[in-house]
Design a protein around this nucleic acid. Structure first.
Lengths: 338, 338
DNA sequence: TGCTACTATGTTACCGGTAACATCGTTAGG
DNA sequence: CCTAACGATGTTACCGGTAACATAGTAGCA
């Protein structure tokens, strides 16, 4: 195991093996048109010198960087982090590296695009929550891109999203099935597709149950716990009547529960609460949170697969994936009394 | 704004501006030895063609990729995610991109090193929790590296860590100050420096208070909530007596509280619990968690700064940073009754 | 005025790979 | 036995930048 401090090149190996650098190139690319004897000599030289092909040079010659970038509003929200983890794992499996950047707003986003895409560093892009702001419009048309968290749209961009409408239906159904009729809805920012679609699911189930939508029972948050807290505070102050809440994510659900408890209401005895995400410690809150589980890791994996296909097979038609959700019943919901 | 589909090169610009490609190179590198008139012609051509320098080619010519990699056991633990976010932000500020990979074990880690470092893709490495397993030994000596979460060691590697010993002291002091004398300690895996150092801080404060260490009051977890739960279960089954717990991270603290409550013990009336991290929803648990806040984002920033220095100034001596912690008192601790 | 020194710009080579084509020796078929 | 075809290997050019050196023109000074 030689202690290579400085880089060995393909030509060093060639000299050492007594062949041309091209023959070495053939060996490392598994090109069979090399005789077994030569092959062995080359392999021996590679081992002796501890040679490793330089990915940058290869990328240069091939015009391919074998690198993707994933742009996320942030890296710390569990949902994003987990999608990124799935994307990274799958990328490496396919021989790609993954660069990451968080872009809280679309100006930063534009800078990142320039840094990562226009500069030729990456050959594909995964964008989480592209409709959180105007960032979806800042993506060069020429770069293969997968959107995560959007419903299918026109244009040459793949997408992966939760089955948001089904999720909205499932949560609403669960609460309706428990006898709740006044179900408040706590949405994410209404610019985002998932907020809209989850609401559509909610509405459709209410209608199917013969209930009329009550606009005063719907409020938008920003996915954070405090925004859930604030929304519930508002409802309570307005003396709006409800027996259940469907929060479109777990953090807002937690904030909502906090506000309820602070007001002396018991969860689930007085108000049932359903979240969405099944974040890691969801079962450790008081009460343990009933929620919808989404396979965020799987979403990341799926996004990368789409991107690999888009990069390696540009002619193929764009795809739009919808990932299932699953209801996890814990302690924050119960049958409506009376 | 031309709709560049295919890449414009420096020579295209040169032709368009009627100069040599080298002159274009000078302009984009802000080399002043170009006359104002020529400079303008070049800039005009760049704008007209929408030219952007290719980072790969530049990296190739310079032998520098301007890319770092961050290797973490996973991306979803808030602590890691937040460090990575800090590292990424700071990296872009200095003109570097950041690749990420999660490596749950040291075999994966070795593969990643090969993929990212040996291949020449990255010129610097940030390794989170290098002593979680044998991964610290798998890093080529030639690549500038910063360890996060280790105490300073011999060798040519920078490090950033929490002031773990001080953190252990602070938590213990807080509980001692509340009159607790039988303080249980829930550590992370003992292979990790931070577990050891936090314990050292704990011990030193107990001794300073004239209390003797009781080995039965110390158990190791794996940072997860269930491991905290299990440890407390064990203590309770063994009828071991304690009035407070210092859990070395928040998740274990949450698990511990869960076990206590399940056994009918009240937190903080019967047992006080201190965590460490101040993870996002720490204040939303029941009771709100008293904990030590660490500036994980700042740790990531600091790590990147060290790495930039190490890369750009290889001769300089290695540095070891220690980041402060801060006590956040909430509802999970109170004065020991009687 | 002639020569040096400096400024602005061009030319060539190189980074470390790969592609395309060239060459040479051997084997198979007419 | 001659030659086409093929297999193994080498040579050259190129990817898109940068460095090093070369050159031409101009200004400064004896």
């Amino acid at each position: 195991m030689p202690n290579r401090t400085q880089k060995t090149t393909i030509r060093d190996v060639a000299v050492s093996a007594g062949v041309s650098h091209q023959t070495v190139s053939r060996v490392i690319n598994n090109d069979k048109r090399v005789s077994p004897a030569t092959w062995q000599k080359v392999e021996a030289a590679i081992a002796k010198l501890g040679y490793r092909p330089n990915a940058i040079a290869r990328g240069m010659a091939l015009g391919r960087s074998h690198t993707f970038a994933c742009l996320s509003p942030n890296l710390t929200d569990y949902t994003f982090a987990s999608i990124i983890e799935g994307a990274a794992k799958e990328a490496y499996l396919h021989g790609y590296s993954l660069m990451i950047a968080s872009a809280p707003n679309d100006d930063t986003f534009t800078v990142m695009i320039d840094e990562l895409v226009t500069s030729g560093r990456t050959e594909g892009l995964i964008v989480l929550n592209p409709y959180a702001d105007g960032r979806h419009a800042r993506i060069p048309a020429s770069v293969p891109t997968v959107f995560v968290g959007t419903r299918p749209r026109e244009g040459a961009i793949d997408s992966v999203a939760l089955a948001d409408e089904a999720a909205g239906q499932l949560a609403t159904e669960h609460l309706l099935g428990l006898g709740h009729q006044r179900i408040a809805l706590l949405t994410g920012p209404m610019e985002e597709d998932c907020s809209q679609d989850r609401q559509v699911g909610y509405c459709s189930r209410l209608q199917a149950a013969g209930l009329k939508m009550d606009a005063s029972l719907v409020r938008a948050g920003d996915w954070s716990a405090p925004s859930g807290y604030t929304a519930v505070k508002h409802w309570l102050e307005q003396k709006i009547d409800f027996t259940a809440i469907f929060a479109q994510n777990d953090r807002m659900a937690i904030g909502a529960i906090h506000a309820l408890q602070e007001a002396g209401l018991r969860v689930p005895q007085d108000v049932s609460v359903v979240g969405l995400d099944d974040m890691p410690l969801a079962s450790y809150f008081d009460p343990p949170l009933t929620t919808l589980r989404q396979d965020t890791f799987g979403i990341g994996v799926a996004a990368t697969r789409l991107l690999v296909q888009a990069v390696e097979n540009p002619g193929a038609p764009r795809q739009h994936l919808s990932m299932p959700v699953e209801l996890v019943v814990r302690g924050s919901t119960q049958r409506h009394a009376e």
